[in-house]
């Protein structure tokens, strides 16, 4: 997932917007995005929200574990790691490359 998306950034983005909702798990390393919705089990969604991941919040994937999962996010001035399974249920809109 990470790092190989430079060239196809645009194509991918179009694909995301038309075909599927992009999720946190689809983000490239270092890419910023805004949360759109969280669709995990209630207790997990609630925990994520109470930790500050709310629709409209900006997040960034800052690291991927050596074995590919989990991933580390930067949100509201702290670092949180989640498994890809949860990240895939957090819909985002990628921010334009800065």
């Amino acid at each position: 997932m990470a790092g190989n998306s430079k060239r196809f950034a645009n194509e991918k983005e179009i694909h995301y917007q038309l075909v599927m909702k992009p999720s946190l798990a689809d983000l490239a390393l270092g890419q910023a995005a805004e949360i759109v919705s969280i669709d995990c089990d209630r207790s997990i969604s609630r925990r994520l929200m109470e930790m500050g991941l709310i629709p409209g919040t900006e997040v960034r994937v800052v690291r991927v574990a050596p074995l590919g999962d989990p991933i580390e996010l930067r949100v509201r001035d702290y670092a949180l790691s989640v498994r890809r399974a949860e990240a895939a249920r957090i819909a985002v809109v990628p921010a334009r490359a800065a």
Partner: peptide, 11 residues
């Protein structure tokens, strides 16, 4: 419920 990870990485 499926175990989750969700861990803060403190500085």
């Amino acid at each position: 419920p499926a175990p989750t990870f969700m861990l803060e990485m403190p500085p």
